[in-house]
């Protein structure tokens, strides 16, 4: 499953990495994701989830995507239930602590229709980091002795050749595609990320291609006035899609917090009959709307303003 280093290098060489415009529609961007691809998802839990892109991939009826993410929230439920993925590699999987255990995740995993491949948080981060560094593994000191490590088959223990200490080695993860939502980027894909970065930068540099969705597109001049704020460089990016509220109903740092009542509603909808509830949700919010604007209309202006008011308040201190 690990990609050879020479293949990784060849794939990178083959990409057009020139300073070129790559703005496209969200529907066009879905053509950069192939069935069966390994897809890394940026953000963490209910934060900077690239929901617009996931929404479009579900509408495009992709299949067999092998997903990885630091921590998986509702988007994992929706990817299982829509059938675009039956395999998610992550460290934690449920909407969020306050909403309890995801009933949808339970329904799919306990019936063995889908797999939740559990790794520790840091091991996932180090796997992306190894991928970003162009090395085949990273040594680390956690997970040893636990059943988290015990049930994984692509781990190795090794005695350090310098000190003799026992180390755990985790393999590099170089996803085919990384989906990352940012506050702003230019038309070439130079991305600035405010606030929490999560694992997004390692993930972007590890991936074979990056699809950026962004709250807004700014000029290249603006990027060049503060290049120290650029977190993902254009050379790594294949597509730029401008999608306001592209993480809704999750949070986008400094812009909007999670849409809490929508998330409460989702939790109660999927509580008693998870599969029927999530099917209804997909029908209403994913297959029904003609475009992202209509999806946002369904979430509702009141919710959007409330989330925005809370989101911007982080700047008020």
């Amino acid at each position: 499953m690990a990609q050879s280093y020479l293949d990784l290098r060849a794939a990178t060489s083959a990409r057009d990495r020139s300073l070129r415009e790559k703005v496209m529609s969200i529907e066009e961007a879905t053509s950069l994701v192939n069935n069966g691809d390994s897809v890394a998802i940026g953000g963490c839990t209910a934060s900077r989830t690239p929901f617009a892109m996931i929404w479009a991939l579900i509408r495009a009826a992709k299949s067999d995507l092998k997903i990885s993410r630091s921590i998986t929230s509702t988007e994992g439920d929706l990817m299982f239930a829509s059938g675009i993925s039956n395999h998610i590699l992550t460290s934690w999987f449920s909407q969020g602590i306050v909403w309890g255990i995801s009933k949808v995740m339970r329904a799919y995993t306990e019936s063995n229709r889908a797999r939740f491949e559990e790794w520790s948080h840091m091991s996932i981060g180090l796997r992306y980091r190894a991928g970003a560094m162009g090395v085949p593994f990273m040594p680390m000191r956690s997970m040893m002795g636990s059943d988290v490590a015990g049930q994984l088959d692509n781990l190795k223990e090794m005695d350090c050749p310098f000190t003799g200490e026992k180390m755990l080695l985790v393999p590099a993860l170089n996803p085919d595609v990384a989906l990352i939502h940012v506050q702003r980027c230019d038309a070439y894909g130079n991305a600035q990320i405010d606030g929490l970065q999560f694992m997004d930068i390692d993930m972007a540099m590890a991936a074979n291609r990056v699809i950026l969705t962004t709250e807004r597109i700014v000029s290249n001049d603006q990027i060049r006035r503060s290049p120290d704020q650029t977190r993902i460089p254009f050379i790594a990016v294949e597509a730029v899609v401008e999608v306001p509220f592209g993480s809704a109903p999750h949070e986008c740092y400094g812009m909007y917090e999670p849409f809490f009542s929508h998330m409460d509603d989702y939790a109660s909808l999927t509580k008693t009959n998870p599969e029927q509830g999530v099917a209804e949700y997909l029908e209403k919010y994913y297959y029904g709307p003609k475009d992202w604007t209509e999806y946002l209309e369904l979430l509702g202006l009141g919710e959007m303003l409330d989330a925005t008011y809370r989101g911007r308040s982080i700047q008020n201190d």
């Binding site: 992550t90 460290s91 306990e110 559990e118 948080h121």
Partner: peptide, 13 residues
């Protein structure tokens, strides 16, 4: 599994 719980997160580390 009888019940699949949310998992480790950073707990293991």
């Amino acid at each position: 599994p009888k019940i699949r719980l949310p998992g480790t997160g950073g707990g293991n580390d």
